[in-house]
């Protein structure tokens, strides 16, 4: 059959496989990102040592490129998919209601494209503020960056605290539909676990977005 990989991956199902796989990979990345950054609660030294170990690892560049690729594929596929889906119903209903019953439609599932795009904009600002933000040396060790100080600096401003809290809550909303949806897209189907997926999706979304939002709030009120 004439099915070069590219044509297959641009079908509706192939597209959703890609959005699902990249979305779930980003979700796993987010867990690791949260776990590492939670070290801020352990104090300046622990946090800086972790950050230094991370950026001085030779694998960091290929991993960063991989992460960037995940984002680019996810965003590109999600946006083209959205546009194609709009074209599948050129004439809107005069009246359309929530079907109720077993439907999983929610605010989260209806706003994926909006939350996604806002998160993308947030990420550009976020990387600029931290990775490429103000650079300080630690007092103890000249080669080690004092990222802790950069973070305290950013989050001493209530505007940035509010901005980060809002952005992380939107990530949570994206994940509230995204986690369960991603598993369904990649074909996960189990007589027991599938039913609990929507509930777990909510629990994990609350943990991740709550954990991420706690960081700027904690910094603001303790420094």
């Amino acid at each position: 059959m004439s099915s070069p990989i590219r044509r297959v991956l641009s079908s509706t199902v192939g597209t959703k496989l890609l959005i699902g796989l990249t979305g779930l990979a980003l979700f796993v990345y987010l867990i690791i990102h949260l776990a590492g950054n939670a070290l801020i609660f352990a104090g300046q030294d622990a946090f800086n040592v972790y950050a230094h170990a991370l950026i001085s690892n030779p694998l960091i560049i290929p991993l960063e490129i991989g992460l960037l690729l995940l984002f680019l594929v996810h965003i590109y596929k999600a946006i083209t998919n959205y546009v194609k889906n709009l074209a599948a119903r050129p004439e809107a209903y005069d009246k359309k209601a929530y079907a109720g019953h077993t439907s999983r439609k929610s605010v989260a599932s209806s706003t994926m494209i909006v939350t996604g795009i806002i998160v993308a904009v947030f990420l550009i600002i976020h990387v600029k503020q931290f990775k490429f933000g103000s650079y300080y040396q630690t007092v103890a060790d000249a080669g080690v960056r004092d990222l802790y100080r950069t973070e305290i600096e950013v989050f001493s401003n209530p505007f940035w605290v509010a901005f980060y809290v809002m952005a992380t809550l939107l990530v949570g909303l994206h994940l509230r539909h995204g986690i369960a949806s991603g598993f369904q897209s990649i074909g996960f189907d189990h007589p027991m676990y599938t039913r609990r997926l929507t509930m777990w999706s909510l629990v994990l979304a609350v943990i991740i977005s709550g954990g991420l939002a706690a960081i700027p709030v904690w910094v603001y009120f303790t420094h």
Partner: peptide
Amino acid sequence: GSCSNEGE
């Protein structure tokens, strides 16, 4: 279109 897994 494609499936967004809403289950409507």
